[in-house]
Design a protein around this nucleic acid. Structure first.
Length: 578
RNA sequence: GCGCCCGUAGCUCAGUGGAUAGAGCAACCGCCUUCUAAGCGGUAGGUCAAAUGUUCGAAUCAUUUCGGGCGCGCCA
């Protein structure tokens, strides 16, 4: 929490403790205390539920709690006035000095954030299979993961951005096969794709590369394993490179790529297996037929199962296939074991909505080997529906005709993509209108906020031209409380609440709180800008009133500083001129 | 059938125990000789899907119902 609120909370908490120690109230209920920036009513800067929670606790009915609280608070140095609302809210107006003191930190961009206990966090996201290019279904998680990482870094954590590459398993075999078919096709053979194979055009490019360097050499290689493995590896390597390049369009970079094949090679599954075995969480059993499978396709078989139901999952889950191979789940568990062994304080995964059913077993198994509760946090992002010309772009998984990141990027660009992908809460399904996000008007919050920054920058540039003010010599000691209007104090209070907003976004892991804040703050700025048209005393620059002009330059610079902070975290541009 | 998520203004969404439930768009009425009108102000628009419960207080929590999305092999 930000210094300001935690300081005041400390004082209110000790008030509650005092009342408890003096036997005025029944219980120490300080854990129910809340204090917040007062955005809802205009009755003060901050509000607290203090009296609500004290009311039911008073032992002596004749004790005048309102008066007691009022006296106590009035003596605190940072409180200008307090107002006890009849419903039970305590509304606090802070002294101008106190608010100015915090504004100063933002003006000089120092000590804005309270030091947190630094944690080593691993954030795994995207992790799309290297069987095709990045497309719309991966986009939201990609940006969400990147921005969330930046948020956590900003408050002092050390974040590893990680990508897990599923380069083992049957999908990769099929990929290799499909690529070889494309190669054969280029060599003049007739080919046909089966259901479940990869007919996408992107494999043709890869096949062309191979044909250009090796000609028809692979047609005559007898060892089919050699062919298979060559085409698999070539495809995976090529596609990983392509995925990296695509993500770079949005400036998304990873610190680490971990290969499933390496996890398998290092026998980590055996280790996880023996831990489970020791804890009696694995057994040989037969699963019931799932509802989604036709009866004729189902054959009950004995295999090793993980006791997922112990952790309130619907079913126990297959850990080893009946043919002796490990399941995908086993590999993935081993991968998480690997992350755990690397010594992170916390693991975060971002998954698409299509993996919801997989969360329970993964979180459970990580709990088991890490011996920690909620060591792994899985964030789910809901699907994005893409609209163009107000028409829903239908996708068919079967045909694999997803709109690729590259295609969307070409039409929309980086800033709107990054902004909109995080501006809706991750659990809410999102509609993305490709035409609207590039419009340059109020309809489009990206431009609305960037425009506010440009306007503020323009004020500062004009201030540099004022004959009687040297902007480079302004320091915070020149800030005059009295020349600031009421409306501006509201903006300044919003600036001060920024560390609280960031902290909140970090602890709830919800980056959309940043864009909400940004839009609210910029709206206040645009409103104030226009007030100067009706009332010339509210114009930001006034040659005839140096004191108020200097004070305004200070908060406008602070406003720009905060905007820069938010834009930087979201990683979109902030042009000075538009 | 089961699990998770969602249901808030005509539309897209915030708000998830607190005050008279908020923004933007769309509609209607206004504001450019002066710091960027790519902007601002105002009007209108609500059974917070429904019911019951929990308590000082519920859009928010619980239970149930209805509607929508996603998922429900030994695939990945």
């Amino acid at each position: 929490m930000n210094d300001l609120l935690s300081l005041i909370k400390k004082d209110l908490t000790s008030l509650i403790e005092k009342l408890f120690n003096e036997d005025v109230i029944k219980n120490n209920i300080s854990n129910k205390l809340t204090i917040d920036y007062n955005s809802k009513s205009k009755q003060g800067d901050l509000s607290s539920n203090l009296l609500f929670i004290l009311k039911g606790q008073i032992l002596n009915k004749s004790f005048n709690i309102n008066e007691y609280v009022e006296n106590y608070l009035s003596n605190l140095e940072y409180i200008e006035t307090i107002d006890i609302h009849k419903a039970g809210f305590v509304n606090i107006v802070l002294t101008k000095d106190y608010i100015s003191n915090y504004l100063n930190k933002i003006y000089i961009l120092e000590n804005i954030y309270t030091k947190t206990n630094k944690q080593k966090i691993n954030l795994e996201f995207v992790s799309a299979n290297p069987t095709g290019p990045i497309h719309i279904a991966h986009l939201r998680g990609a940006v969400l993961g990147d921005v969330l990482s930046s948020i956590l870094e900003r408050i002092g954590h050390e974040v590893t951005r990680e990508y897990y590459v599923n380069d083992a398993g049957s999908q990769i075999t099929i990929l290799g096969n499909s690529l070889f078919k494309r190669y054969q096709e280029l060599c003049g053979k007739n080919i046909q794709f089966l259901d479940g194979e990869y007919p996408g055009n992107y494999l043709i490019e890869i096949a062309e590369e191979i044909k250009n360097s090796d000609n028809e050499k692979w047609l005559s290689v007898k060892d089919s394993n050699e062919v298979q493995s060559y085409f698999e590896q070539y495809a995976v390597k090529y596609l990983i490179k392509k995925i990296k390049d695509d993500l770079l369009l949005l400036n998304i970079k990873f610190d680490q790529f971990t290969l499933e094949s390496e996890i398998v090679k290092n026998n980590l599954i055996d280790k996880v297996f023996s831990i489970l075995k020791d804890k009696n969480l694995i057994y040989e059993g037969i699963l019931e037929k799932p509802l989604t499978v036709d009866t004729e396709d189902w054959e009950p078989r004995k295999q090793l199962l993980f006791r997922s139901t112990t952790f309130s999952d619907d079913n126990d889950r297959a850990f080893q296939k009946s043919n002796g191979e490990w399941t995908y789940f086993a590999n993935d568990a081993a991968y998480h074991f690997d992350k755990y062994k690397r010594g992170y304080d916390k693991l975060i995964n971002i998954w698409g909505a299509d993996h919801i059913g997989y969360i329970k077993r993964m979180v459970s198994i990580v709990d088991v080997f890490s011996n920690k509760k909620e060591y792994l946090k899985v964030i789910v992002c809901q699907i994005v529906r893409l609209f163009k010309d107000n028409q829903l772009l239908k996708i068919s998984k079967r045909e694999g005709n997803f709109v690729t990141l590259q295609e969307i990027y070409k039409q929309v660009g980086k800033d709107p993509l990054r902004y909109f992908m995080i501006s809706t809460k991750n659990e809410t399904p999102m509609d993305f209108y490709m035409d609207k996000v590039v419009e340059k008007n109020k309809d489009n919050p990206v431009f609305y906020c960037q425009y506010a920054y440009a306007r503020a920058s323009s004020v500062i540039n004009n201030a540099k031209k004022l004959p009687n003010i040297d902007i480079s010599k302004i320091s915070f000691t020149d800030f005059d409380n009295l020349s600031i209007s009421k409306f501006e104090w509201e903006i300044i209070l919003k600036l001060i609440s920024w560390p609280y907003i960031l902290q909140d976004a970090a602890s709830t892991m919800q980056p959309h709180k940043l864009t909400n804040y940004l839009e609210d703050l910029c709206s206040s700025f645009h409103a104030f800008w226009n007030k100067g048209k009706d009332d010339s005393s509210l114009r930001m620059l006034d040659e005839n009133n140096i004191t108020s002009t200097i004070s305004r330059i200070i908060w406008i610079q602070s406003f720009r500083n905060i905007l820069k902070e938010v834009f930087t975290i979201i990683d979109i541009s902030f042009p000075e001129n538009m």
